[in-house]
């Protein structure tokens, strides 16, 4: 099924075949990136603006690089430093930027639903680079591509997602995507970091990490935010590491060939042991970063095609009217 959307706001509205279309193209870009083949004509003449209302180094760099490899003119804006401080609303900021006629907006925002709201007010393509606790679709796609390349398939796998699931948009998008592709999903977290009603999403819920990891093909670790460590949600960093930190002993409950993933940035010694993270036989964390660029190239490529098609139709319609 071709991918005909105008925006990539989340995994929730995607059909499994659309996910496959995106991943197939990303797969090709990943190979060509390795061979050093450039595609500067794909987004030639297009303007991409990265609006990050929340700090990010790797996601912003990944989108910037993806856009540049495809030949777009890329501009990155640190939104905290600009108009937001002057009291401008999100919609006004969006309308101002929209008036500059960009083609692609990449947006990260600390509020759930903020990117959806912004997408309603502009007439260019919008990519969600993470909104609050809601979705982070390109992260789920890059995780899926990594799994598919490592495991040779993206279905009937047992995937354990472990950590601060309650506050994680990465977890939500991954639950959506892996569920749509018919995988078995296990969620492992202390109950204070587990969202309410989550079992209704078709996941198995564990608060015991060893049981949760048993027989897993993929172990996906999540970052624990520093501000949640001291007494609010969990008693302490060291107790968390003891019960939920991924070390060799706990990993031994998963399948022998299980891969270890982490969206970064890692807290070594909090949610993951340094030696596991660096184990080239188990950890695919660097591959995830690599796939991130390829997935973002694929998403922007397909969305740009749809945008061009739509603009072409609008121009034709205007001619008929004239």
């Amino acid at each position: 099924m071709p991918y005909r959307a105008m925006h990539l706001l989340g995994i929730e509205p995607l059909h499994p075949t659309e996910i496959t279309t995106l991943l197939d193209l990303a797969d090709r870009y990943a190979d060509e990136n390795r061979r050093g083949i450039a595609h500067r004509d794909v987004l030639e003449g297009m303007t991409q603006i990265n609006m990050f209302f929340e700090n990010s180094t790797r996601t912003q760099a990944s989108f910037e690089l993806a856009g540049k490899r495809l030949g777009a003119d890329v501009m990155s804006m640190a939104m905290q430093a600009s108009s937001i401080k002057k009291g401008e609303t999100l919609i006004d900021t969006a309308l101002t930027l929209n008036a500059m006629r960009p083609d692609i907006l990449v947006v990260r925002h600390p509020q759930s639903g903020a990117v959806d709201l912004l997408a309603q007010k502009v007439n260019c393509t919008v990519l969600n680079a993470g909104d609050g606790r809601h979705e982070h679709p390109t992260q789920a796609l890059l995780d899926a591509l990594t799994i598919r390349r490592e495991k040779g398939r993206l279905h009937r796998l047992t995937v354990a997602i472990c950590g601060d699931i309650a506050h994680s948009r990465v977890a939500r998008s991954n639950i959506m995507l892996l569920g749509k592709m018919e995988n078995r999903i296990r969620l492992i977290a202390p109950p204070t970091l587990m969202p309410s009603g989550i079992a209704d999403f078709g996941c198995e819920v564990f608060d015991d990490m060893e049981k949760g990891l048993e027989g897993a093909d993929v172990v996906m670790m999540l970052r624990l935010q520093k501000e949640r460590m001291d007494g609010g949600f969990i008693p302490s960093e060291r107790e968390y590491y003891h019960r939920y930190g991924l070390d060799a002993e706990k990993l031994s409950y998963a399948k022998d060939d299980a891969i270890v993933m982490h969206p970064g940035p890692m807290n070594r010694g909090v949610e993951i042991d340094g030696t596991i993270a660096d184990d080239i036989n188990r950890s695919v964390i660097q591959t995830q970063v690599e796939m991130g660029v390829a997935v973002r190239m694929a998403a922007m490529d397909l969305l740009a095609r749809n945008l061009r098609a739509k603009r072409g139709q609008e121009a034709a319609a205007r001619e008929v009217m004239a």
């Binding site: 929730e12 759930s112 609050g132 606790r133 939500r172 969202p195 009603g197 209704d200």
Partner: peptide, 15 residues
């Protein structure tokens, strides 16, 4: 209100 919908939308819910 906390529950499946709140979790789906990533919004803070109250029991």
């Amino acid at each position: 209100t906390s529950g499946k919908f709140a979790s789906l939308r990533g919004l803070p819910g109250v029991s």
